[in-house]
Design a protein around this nucleic acid. Structure first.
Lengths: 145, 145
DNA sequence: CAGAAATAATCAGCACACTGAGCATCTGCC
DNA sequence: GGCAGATGCTCAGTGTGCTGATTATTTCTG
């Protein structure tokens, strides 16, 4: 039984894709704010005053991971985390003015970065890639539930 | 400036894809041996007696990451790490019998898992997805060099 | 109203993945 | 032979991401 060709393994390719992306992100978007952090800021622009659990569903991240991540954003003053007076279990989250500013700046840069990242593909291929990944990811996340 | 639709962001999708994959991996392939670890075992089946740097190029992982990862595999007795007597800087890597056994077992299971993972796509779409990811990842890794 | 169940967050522990710094070793040039 | 640069590895530090256990709070039920 010999070795296998990893270039036909979606998991290995997904890891490489993610890795390559985060490297380019560091170079073209921000060294301080990571891509998952941007996802959180973006979710809070869309839906302010949600708790960490709701947030975690929105960005498809674990509750523990969200806690760490939000703590880092709060330390940097981009997010405000307040205990809900009506329900003492929940942390209500909100962007600060700084958080809004950072998000705004990164929106432009991520758009630029995505163009570079997907430059090897033509318009049709880009759409196909995004659609296929989403289908597989959606289905696998379903499996979990 | 409002929020952005993350489902059109390849980085976010890549992370979700990778996440979904590693979850399914834990359920269907192995809880002890992770997907990157399997990639390392597989590379050593193909090319024994290489050093960590060469290995890191093969599986597209950082030198530091490889060091950690190989240390874990060595601790579990799957890999042997010997200082090269001809070049005292290099660690020469080799699978143990246990390592070969584990690799063999996982080859079958990963094949099964990949079928489940890609089940939402038809045969043509599967090929397209893998090919497109590889093109983007290759190009981005080029950019780095 | 009291106890049980459900829910939200936190914490410890592990793996992956990077950067940047440092150390040992080897190679090439003088 | 000796020094400079290149090379391979390790280490410290940080961030992402998970599981499983614990804690606090709320809600449901008898």
């Amino acid at each position: 039984m010999g070795a296998v060709d990893l270039s036909t393994h979606p998991g290995h390719l997904a890891r490489r894709l993610q890795q390559a992306h985060s490297l380019l992100w560091g170079a073209m978007v921000s060294e301080e704010t990571t891509s998952p952090q941007f996802a959180v800021l973006n979710a809070l622009v869309e839906k302010p005053d949600i708790d960490q659990r709701t947030l975690s569903e929105h960005v498809h991240l674990d509750r523990s991971t969200i806690a760490d991540l939000v703590a880092r954003l709060a330390r940097r003053g981009l997010v405000e985390r307040v205990r809900d007076p009506r329900d003492g279990r929940r942390n209500v989250l909100k962007l600060t003015d700084d958080g809004v500013r950072v998000h705004r700046k990164l929106v432009t840069r991520t758009a630029r970065m995505n163009r570079v990242f997907l430059a090897p593909l033509d318009e049709g291929e880009r759409e196909t890639l995004l659609r296929l990944i989403a289908r597989v990811a959606d289905a696998a996340e379903e499996l979990r539930a």
